[in-house]
Design a protein around this nucleic acid. Structure first.
Lengths: 263, 263
DNA sequence: TAGATTGTTAATCGATTAACAATC
DNA sequence: TAGATTGTTAATCGATTAACAATC
């Protein structure tokens, strides 16, 4: 374990724990709204209150990310946003290919703001002749067999994999052979890749399982508590507890067309 | 802390850690392929090899989920699948509403197999008149203001929130007021809800951040290792290490149209 | 039987939380 | 200054991993 630490420190870059990493974009999102409102400084407590996190955790996260504040004053909002965005690589978006221009692929292409979050999808690929040649959200769909050559010539390192599970492994192999270093995998399947390839799995079904079990437990708890088989009792006093503060802010804004899910 | 444990045990239901929970669907997926191939028993090592997990972790997970095997023999595949699917609630799908029939919402509706994974989306809602009345994948889009009444009459407890961030909080409030108990939130925003409401966040941007930082680190590591500024050296010997076994299995299957991402 | 595999208890590791000192 | 807030070190908690006994 001593060796482990030495090795890590030797790399020069501090290891950020993944949970911390996942919270950084949330901080960014909130801080951006503060900038819009002209707020100059924030404290950990404020951030924590907004994101439902303990203040100490916020402080620790920022510290781990190498960001400092000033006692009593707090953190400078612009400096904080800048440091976070730089750390997250949002200032210079990386280029990526998307493979599989189906439903999900199209949905992802429909988020033009991805480029604001460090990811620039420059081309899509598919094997379906009906899709090839089409443009989805300004992104041209190309035949898959053009990928290897293009990936190398354009030095693309990220592949977004939105193909059917049955095709996922074969496609991943192709990506790896084309010089792709990181795969954002949306197929519910463990890809087998060389160990220096980064695979990041986005498994909706694992996520759904979590939700489902939580819900089952909650329903069981509430029914056993009240004695009645299915009494959720939502309408009452719980509302008052916390909702009020938030309703005022956002009020009854309509849904709209959902071009992208960002404010 | 003693109180905590007593309380938990008193609930009758063992707490399953979330990481374990997230792995259960992966076990299911692999086990299903085994059933298809007529395999009767598996060991933890086999499962672990397939999913890139240490065998001890698999064993522990199954144990936590209350599933037993037999020394030397392993686990009965059908019994295992059955126990997992029951635990995950896949045998009796829960009904859900989807709110926000935009790109992402449509993509989710395009996964008819969701019902096999415990979730049955019975209606979609939107405020866009152009969408209302349309059917997306056999799912009717209804006006949002019909939701409260329908949710109560149909006893719907799950809401899938795929509206723009700006509308998310207001919509969440509406859901809570309609008796929804669990919200699957796809907006990159921390919803403020009463504390007995379950919110499950699906934040692609947090996920992307993880991928992005991992990639940056990997690129930096590989470039500093080789001395050259950007030398990824993918094509060489790494391939041989692990890919081979998997290529043979799936080979050059075409991508297809991606109706859903399951095998 | 011998050996493989599960079951179970203990050790390790990492993230969260707490306590308190430092500082503006 | 006094008090709020950050910085830092220690304690706790939970998940992973290891060790070994039980068993087929």
């Amino acid at each position: 374990m001593i060796i482990g630490r030495i090795e890590r420190e030797h790399k020069g870059q501090r290891e950020i724990p993944e949970p911390t990493l996942r919270r950084l974009p949330q901080y960014c999102h909130y801080l951006t709204t503060l900038i819009r409102d002209g707020v100059g400084t924030v404290s950990c407590s404020q951030i924590g209150a907004e994101l439902a996190l303990p203040p100490i955790q916020v402080r620790k996260d920022l510290q781990i990310a190498g960001i400092g504040g000033r006692p009593k004053v707090g953190y400078s909002v612009p400096a904080l946003v800048n440091a976070l965005e730089t750390y997250l690589g949002w200032n210079n978006a990386k280029e990526a290919f998307l493979i599989g221009a189906g439903k999900l692929g199209t949905a992802l292409l429909g988020y033009p703001r991805f480029s604001k979050f460090g990811l620039n999808i420059v081309a899509a690929f598919d094997v379906d002749p009906a899709k090839i040649g089409q443009s989805i959200r300004d992104c041209l769909v190309l035949p898959l067999d053009k990928l290897p050559d293009l990936a190398r010539r354009m030095s693309i390192h990220i592949g977004i994999l939105t193909v059917p599970a049955a095709a996922a492994q074969a496609t991943a192999n192709l990506l790896v052979n084309s010089g792709i270093v990181a795969i954002w995998n949306f197929a519910p399947l463990t890809l087998k890749v060389p160990k220096n390839i980064i695979v990041h799995n986005e498994d909706l079904y694992s996520s759904l399982a979590t939700l489902s079990v939580k819900l089952t437990k909650a329903l069981r708890a509430s029914s056993s508590a009240s004695g009645e088989p299915r009494a959720y009792d939502i309408s009452g006093d719980q509302q008052a507890v916390k909702i009020r503060e938030s309703v005022t802010e956002d009020s009854a804004e309509p849904l709209g067309k959902m071009p992208n899910p960002f404010a």
